[in-house]
Computed example of a mutant assay.
Amino acid sequence: MAEENHSTVTEFILAGLTDKPEHQLPLFLLFLGVYVFTVVGNVGMITLIGLSSRLHTTMYYLLSSLSFIDLCQPTVITPKMLVNFMMEKNTISYPECMTQLYFFIVFAIAKCHMLSVMAYDPYLQVPLLYNVIMSNQVCSWMVVGVYSMGLIRATVNTTCMLRVLFCKDDIINHYFCDLFPLLELSCSSTFINEVIGLSSSATISPSYIFIIASILHICSTEGRYKAFSTCSSHVSAVALFFGSLAFMYLQPSSVGSMDQGKVSSVFYTIIVPMLNPLIYCLRNKDVKVALSKLLGNKSL
């Protein structure tokens, strides 16, 4: 009977970023501006890569896929958050919450693996067999694999979440339906959910260790410098994303750490998707040349 009562959750309340009414409008305007900039930047990057023949390579095909993920991930979260800034009670229904969680995990896991896949591309530009190894077909299969991993892991995580019993409270101490804030409300065992939620970092980190070790084994100093300089933009994007992600998911669970985690969540869910087009554009000569040519042609 008690279990039956636990399963009658119909909606949650999102605590949001702040409980101070005077901060709601400034935050609404701030995140609206960030979201607009994110949409314009990532759509612009996808369009630029599509229109510029100079950028029709596997590296930029992967970059356009990353831009698509960076467009979708904040879209799952930001519109609802903007609406909540204007509401007195920030409620979200149970089905809507599980749907948001599912698509958030899809794009979060896809982004983790996309960043990992992209790390191989600049590394493989050093060996002579690059054009053989990184064919269009191999690149396409990599992208299919990235989205497949996102869909599979999201399905597993969300299915496990549907089995969780909520009995402590209905207030999610977050601004969207994230995995660990939801688990904080559980009165049933969450061990499996936590293991599955943390498994991504364990499968991705070895990729970067392998790539760095392989570059260090390049005999010539010039070769090592070329490899690292090619990876510089990507390393910046990876550091921002995984740094803020680790701060949220790898710290001790407590109310205080969850409040701090909301700040880091803003970075990897909203700020980093906005910054990635700038990182790859400003630190990439090919993108800057293609952009100047495209703008030059349109100005004629």
Rank of each mutant, 00 (worst) to 15 (best):
S244L: 06
G150R: 01
K168V: 08
K168I: 05
F180R: 09
K168Y: 02
R224D: 01
L240W: 10
H174S: 10
K226P: 00
I192S: 05
L216N: 01
L151W: 10
I196W: 13
L216Y: 09
A154S: 07
I196M: 05
G197S: 07
S200V: 15
C219M: 04
H174F: 08
C160Q: 06
R163E: 14
P206Y: 15
F242C: 10
Y208K: 09
T221Q: 09
T230I: 03
Y147C: 01
L216I: 09
Y208V: 06
F176T: 00
F180I: 13
C231K: 11
C177Q: 01
S205F: 15
I192R: 12
R224S: 02
E222H: 07
S189P: 05
C167N: 11
S200H: 10
S205C: 13
S214D: 09
E194H: 09
Y208G: 10
L179S: 04
V195M: 12
V156Q: 00
N193W: 00
E194S: 15
L185E: 14
V195H: 04
L165A: 12
M161D: 02
T155D: 03
L151R: 00
F180L: 14
I212V: 13
F191V: 15
E222S: 06
L179Y: 02
A213N: 05
T155R: 07
S201Q: 11
S220N: 09
G223P: 08
L179R: 03
A239W: 08
T221W: 11
F247V: 12
I204Q: 04
L216Q: 08
H234S: 03
L240H: 13
I152Q: 06
F242W: 13
K168N: 14
A227M: 00
V164I: 14
S199G: 04
S148Q: 03
I204E: 03
L198Q: 13
V235A: 14
T203R: 07
A237V: 15
F247S: 13
S232L: 12
Y147T: 04
A202Q: 11
P181I: 04
F210P: 01
C167D: 11
I211P: 02
F242Q: 05
T158H: 07
C187K: 00
N157I: 13
Y208C: 06
G243I: 09
S186T: 06
F241E: 02
K226Q: 10
L182A: 10
C160V: 10
I196G: 02
L162G: 11
Y208W: 15
M248W: 12
L185S: 05
F191Q: 15
T158G: 04
A237R: 04
D169K: 08
I218G: 00
L162T: 10
M161S: 07
I171M: 06
S236W: 05
S236T: 08
Y147P: 09
F166K: 04
S148A: 15
T159R: 11
H234G: 11
V195E: 00
S199C: 08
S186L: 03
F210D: 09
A227W: 03
I209H: 13
K226S: 07
F210G: 01
I172K: 05
F191I: 15
L179W: 08
L162V: 01
D178Q: 10
I192Q: 14
H234P: 04
V238A: 14
